[in-house]
Nucleic acid binder design. Structure first.
Lengths: 233, 233
DNA sequence: GTCGAAACTTCACGCCGTATAGTCACTGCA
DNA sequence: TGCAGTGACTATACGGCGTGAAGTTTCGAC
């Protein structure tokens, strides 16, 4: 019993070390630096040994994406939950600020999740990354739900149905926030787009040639965001 | 005279063919498919022959980025200018719609410009791509300038200085739109972020798991955008 | 007609992912 | 205690990649 446990433990440790080394390589050399040979070199193994733990390099990358995406989702959720629910504007700002902060301190991770992760990589259909993505979207919808009492007057004519959204996401939202209309989900997706766009431009260096103060732009964005939802600053 | 011209003409033709083949490979296989060897194969040459035209693969990629980015800037400028200047909302919507349309029909080009273009690629400091980027920003600022008479009341307390922006961009804007305050440039950058974010999420497939109707989200975004600027729909 | 430069090929090196076959230690059972 | 089985790992190999050095061909200029 304990002996089979030993094998499994060693195996889990090696798997963890592979991921740790891969993340280290990524943060120093970008997503492209994740090569089986480099990982193996760092670990004193042959590249082929890694095939015992991950069927292919893309499998490893997929696992890393899952981990990194989960860490992002954890970070923004924690920041949001540190703010009381009766302060919807504060929660939105906390969430969005944590999003940018996480992206700046984990720039390579951001590129891994949202960019072309690695040459030729094709994301698989299911898995934990789509789940983390759902979590992010659902979290944002929660923020929109918190703001909805004040916001709904501003989006009265919005023409959205539940069929305009992924069935799983729609079901999740309708269960957690009964009475919330589909227009609120559209708002959540739009907010996601706004924040993702600004952070993405910054991370990929496209803002560098335009402004030395991307933080100020982002802060202005947040101010207008809560105002656009009819919330007091 | 004409004979030296011949060499140069052949050289220009070959250069153009390399770029054309590279763009073809990109649109069929993504930015990663741009390999010197594949280009050479397609052209019936050896990979090393390309070194006579481009010092390195990154040089070729840089040139392609410039070309593609310029085509994007042309497309959005043309769409905007097809709308009369006395219809600022129409111009904004035309610009933004052209932006998404271009991105969807040139998805690989979008990834080339805004993503990790190619393993290990590092963008050079100067060049035509930053110039095209400036052009996009300046164009957007022009849209903001058109909307400013109605919008300024909504952004009265915005706290931006010209020093918050790149000197070149600031100079360009101040010359072209005298009297326009720096807050308008901030609005332009934020709009860029909004649109870029939504399109980027769509192109990279992150919206796929949330909504089957990204177009509808985008249209709602445009509606709220012009409304948020105080313009009539 | 000859010279020199430009265009291009050949060969080589070290990267990469990965398939196949083989080695070796450790585990579980008799 | 000895022996099979299994899982971890290595060795070797293939094709593809960017790129450097050296050699060859082509062709305009004088």
């Amino acid at each position: 019993m304990a002996t089979t446990g030993r094998r499994e433990r060693l195996r889990a440790e090696t798997t963890a070390e592979i991921k740790k080394v891969a993340l280290g390589l990524m943060s120093s050399g970008g997503p492209d630096a994740i090569t089986l040979r480099a990982i193996a070199r760092e670990m004193g193994m042959t590249a082929n040994a890694i095939y015992g733990y991950f069927a292919t390099r893309d499998d490893l990358v997929t696992t890393l994406i899952n981990d990194v995406y989960t860490s992002l989702a954890d970070a923004v959720d924690a920041a949001r939950d540190a703010c009381p629910t009766d302060d919807p504007a504060g929660r939105i700002i906390a969430w969005a600020t944590a999003f940018r902060d996480w992206a700046l301190t984990n720039a390579e991770g951001f590129r891994l999740i949202y960019g072309d992760p690695v040459p030729g990589y094709q994301a698989p259909e299911g898995g934990a990354a789509p789940e983390a993505e759902h979590r992010v979207c659902a979290g944002l919808t929660g923020l929109a739900a918190g703001a909805w009492p004040q916001a709904k007057a501003l989006f009265a004519e919005a023409d959205f149905q539940w069929s305009d959204f992924d069935p799983g996401l729609a079901a999740e939202v309708r269960e957690e926030f009964p009475g919330l209309p589909p227009a609120a989900v559209a708002i959540a997706l739009r907010i996601w787009g706004h924040l993702h766009g600004l952070v993405s431009l910054e991370i990929y260096g496209h803002l560098r040639g335009q402004t030395p103060r991307p933080d100020k732009i982002y802060r202005a964005e947040l101010t207008q965001l809560v105002r656009g939802l009819g919330l007091p600053a």
